[in-house]
């Protein structure tokens, strides 16, 4: 049965999970957990935080699954929850940090001193230079870019997640992309 659950469409699993079937819910979690973890880690900067986020999202998803109007859209819903929870965690952490010490957010990939353009050119140039450029972006632009490109969220969804207007999302995304393109093309 477990094998069968792993091959059925999302809507079947989401429908069963909303009815209280924990096995179907766990199958959904296994199916989209890696994407949720990857997105949360890219946003929060660590797997420890990402795993906390994924767990919080799954608890919330279990409680709210019966409110999901379109069960087939469960993947996007889980990723939106993941984005929101990750942003919440970053805000909590910043509030905490500003009380204790001005530490700031830790991006997922800080550039180590020796990892300059030369190192990047050797090891998958595009990917490494993108990671470095991304970690150097202003925080709000970085969040917009990740929610768009890694979480696959729409402008309106990103706007709701970040509590800004869709026009601001458009602007920040464009500025993020401009900077990323420039950084990456400088390194080619």
């Amino acid at each position: 049965m477990r094998d069968q659950l792993d091959v059925v469409p999302d809507a079947i699993l989401a429908g069963r999970a909303a009815d209280g079937d924990t096995a179907a819910f766990e199958s959904l979690a296994r199916r989209y957990g890696p994407h949720m973890r990857a997105a949360a880690r890219r946003l929060t900067g660590s797997y420890a935080d990402a795993d906390d986020v994924v767990q919080e999202v799954l608890v919330q998803a279990w409680q709210q699954l019966d409110t999901l109007r379109e069960p087939a859209a469960v993947k996007g819903w889980l990723l939106r929850l993941t984005g929101s929870r990750s942003i919440d965690l970053l805000r909590r952490r910043r509030n905490h940090a500003s009380l204790a010490a001005a530490d700031g957010d830790a991006p997922a990939d800080t550039v180590s001193p020796e990892a300059g353009p030369e190192a990047a050119a050797v090891a998958g140039a595009g990917l490494e230079s993108l990671k470095a450029a991304l970690s150097a972006l202003p925080e709000e632009q970085r969040r917009c870019w990740i929610l768009k490109e890694i979480n696959g969220q729409s402008y309106e969804e990103i706007a709701r997640t970040l509590n800004i207007s869709p026009a601001s999302v458009r602007g920040r995304l464009a500025r993020a992309r401009t900077t990323l393109v420039r950084e990456m093309e400088d390194w080619r």
Binding site: R30, G33, H35, R37, A38, G126, L127, K131, I150, V181
Partner: peptide, 22 residues
């Protein structure tokens, strides 16, 4: 912008692989 989008796709694939399996 399209090259950047392709690089973004690569980053996602690499992050997804690094995140491990369910």
């Amino acid at each position: 912008l399209r090259r950047l989008a392709a690089a973004g796709g690569e980053l996602f694939a690499s992050d997804l692989a690094a995140a491990g399996s369910g």
